[in-house]
Amino acid sequence: MSDHGARSPERIALLGGVYSNYLALEAVIADAREQGATKIYCLGDLGAFGPFPDRAIEILRKHQIETVRGNYDDSIGRGLADCQCGYTDERDNHFARLSYEYTFKNTSATSREFLRSLPPEIRFEVHGVRVLLCHGSPRKMNEFVWESTSSTHFLEYLARQHAADVVCTTHTGIAWQRTLSEGRLWLNVGAIGRPPNDGLTSILYALLDFFPKTMPTARATLRRVAYDHERLAVEMRAEQLPEEFIETILTGWWTTCLEILPAKERSRGRH
Rank of each mutant, 00 (worst) to 15 (best):
residue 2 S to L: 03
residue 4 H to L: 15
residue 4 H to F: 15
residue 9 P to S: 03
residue 9 P to D: 01
residue 9 P to I: 00
residue 10 E to P: 03
residue 10 E to A: 04
residue 10 E to D: 06
residue 11 R to D: 05
residue 12 I to V: 12
residue 17 G to F: 01
residue 18 V to A: 15
residue 18 V to L: 15
residue 18 V to E: 14
residue 20 S to R: 08
residue 21 N to E: 10
residue 25 L to K: 10
residue 34 E to P: 01
residue 36 G to K: 04
residue 37 A to Q: 01
residue 43 L to S: 09
residue 43 L to P: 15
residue 48 A to C: 08
residue 49 F to A: 00
residue 50 G to R: 03
residue 50 G to F: 06
residue 53 P to I: 02
residue 53 P to D: 07
residue 55 R to E: 14
residue 56 A to C: 13
residue 57 I to T: 06
residue 64 Q to N: 04
residue 65 I to P: 11
residue 66 E to C: 09
residue 66 E to L: 09
residue 69 R to F: 11
residue 69 R to L: 09
residue 70 G to A: 09
residue 71 N to T: 08
residue 73 D to P: 14
residue 74 D to W: 14
residue 79 G to Y: 05
residue 81 A to Q: 10
residue 81 A to F: 14
residue 81 A to Y: 13
residue 87 Y to W: 13
residue 87 Y to F: 15
residue 90 E to A: 11
residue 91 R to G: 01
residue 93 N to C: 06
residue 93 N to K: 12
residue 96 A to C: 13
residue 98 L to I: 00
residue 99 S to F: 02
residue 103 T to Q: 06
residue 104 F to E: 15
residue 104 F to V: 04
residue 105 K to G: 12
residue 106 N to W: 12
residue 107 T to P: 15
residue 108 S to R: 14
residue 112 R to G: 14
residue 112 R to M: 13
residue 113 E to L: 13
residue 116 R to P: 13
residue 118 L to R: 08
residue 119 P to K: 09
residue 120 P to I: 01
residue 120 P to F: 13
residue 121 E to H: 10
residue 123 R to Q: 10
residue 123 R to N: 15
residue 125 E to P: 13
residue 126 V to I: 14
residue 126 V to F: 14
residue 130 R to A: 11
residue 135 H to E: 07
residue 136 G to L: 07
residue 137 S to R: 02
residue 139 R to D: 15
residue 140 K to M: 14
residue 144 F to H: 14
residue 150 S to N: 06
residue 153 H to W: 08
residue 154 F to H: 08
residue 154 F to A: 00
residue 156 E to N: 01
residue 159 A to K: 00
residue 160 R to D: 03
residue 162 H to A: 00
residue 163 A to L: 04
residue 165 D to E: 08
residue 166 V to C: 00
residue 168 C to S: 12
residue 170 T to F: 12
residue 171 H to T: 08
residue 175 A to E: 09
residue 181 S to H: 11
residue 188 N to D: 12
residue 195 P to H: 00
residue 196 P to N: 07
residue 198 D to C: 07
residue 199 G to C: 02
residue 200 L to E: 12
residue 201 T to M: 02
residue 206 A to L: 01
residue 211 F to R: 06
residue 211 F to L: 10
residue 214 T to V: 12
residue 217 T to H: 15
residue 217 T to L: 14
residue 218 A to I: 02
residue 218 A to K: 04
residue 219 R to H: 08
residue 222 L to H: 15
residue 223 R to K: 07
residue 229 H to N: 06
residue 230 E to W: 05
residue 231 R to K: 13
residue 231 R to F: 08
residue 231 R to H: 08
residue 233 A to D: 06
residue 233 A to Y: 12
residue 234 V to K: 07
residue 236 M to D: 04
residue 237 R to V: 00
residue 237 R to C: 03
residue 237 R to G: 04
residue 238 A to M: 02
residue 239 E to S: 11
residue 239 E to F: 10
residue 240 Q to A: 06
residue 243 E to F: 06
residue 244 E to W: 01
residue 244 E to Y: 08
residue 246 I to S: 10
residue 246 I to F: 07
residue 248 T to C: 13
residue 248 T to I: 01
residue 254 W to Y: 10
residue 255 T to R: 07
residue 255 T to S: 07
residue 255 T to F: 10
residue 255 T to G: 06
residue 256 T to Q: 08
residue 259 E to Y: 05
residue 259 E to F: 06
residue 264 K to T: 02
residue 265 E to H: 05
residue 268 R to E: 03
